[in-house]
């Protein structure tokens, strides 16, 4: 998301277990990991990376609640105040008939809200250039990345020896 470029030193692992071991080793060596990229969600990776529990679901609930109240409120207003019409001899304020639409709008708002939130967090907008370290991390490689933009040679050397120690298949530098 950051506009200025970042120089990244990253290692690619062949297996998620190797990656998890590497993250644990980095933790015990007090190395500051920039990020980890995997082709699929790896169970148990979040706690060792020290990530907090996601708050996305709170937003999901909020969007859903907005959708539900919007749908129910709008229908109640339209059918009792704005333009009351009798349908099938039912009362104007026919709650059972409103429920399917309330449900649909709850899902719609939650889905759209979450999609847009997700795009915002990931910095994905039309025209954005993808900052991918390596195409293979969306397929079969597990990547551990260090930010070396301002690192001196000894730190970089420390990272490189870390990668060879933890069995990285490949180590590369890329500016993104």
């Amino acid at each position: 998301m950051a506009s200025e470029t970042t120089k990244v030193l990253y290692g690619l692992y062949n297996d998620e277990e190797d990656l998890k071991k590497a993250v644990k080793a980095a933790n015990s060596d007090h190395l500051d990991i920039m990020d980890v990229y995997t082709p699929f969600p790896v169970h148990g990776l979040d706690p060792i990376l020290g990530l907090k529990e996601s708050r996305l679901h709170q937003l999901g609930f909020t969007y859903g609640a907005i959708g539900a109240s919007f749908a129910f409120g709008l229908m109640s207003w339209v059918f009792t105040r704005d333009w009351p019409i009798v349908f099938g001899g039912k009362p104007y304020w026919s709650v059972p008939a409103f429920i399917p639409i309330t449900f649909e709008l709850t899902v719609l708002f939650a889905a759209w809200g979450m999609t847009l939130t997700f795009y915002t967090i990931c910095g994905l907008w039309p025209g954005v250039k993808a900052k991918s370290l390596d195409n293979r991390i969306t397929d079969n490689k597990f990547c551990l990345a260090y930010d070396v933009t301002e690192a001196d040679d000894s730190t970089v050397e420390k990272y490189r020896s870390f990668f060879s120690k933890t069995g990285a298949d490949e180590v590369n530098v890329k500016t993104i």
Partner: peptide
């Protein structure tokens, strides 16, 4: 079996 759920209050037990 692991569901992969990350619950902060459980992290201490897990560690």
């Amino acid at each position: 079996h692991e569901t992969g759920a990350l619950i902060e209050s459980e992290q201490d037990d897990k560690a």
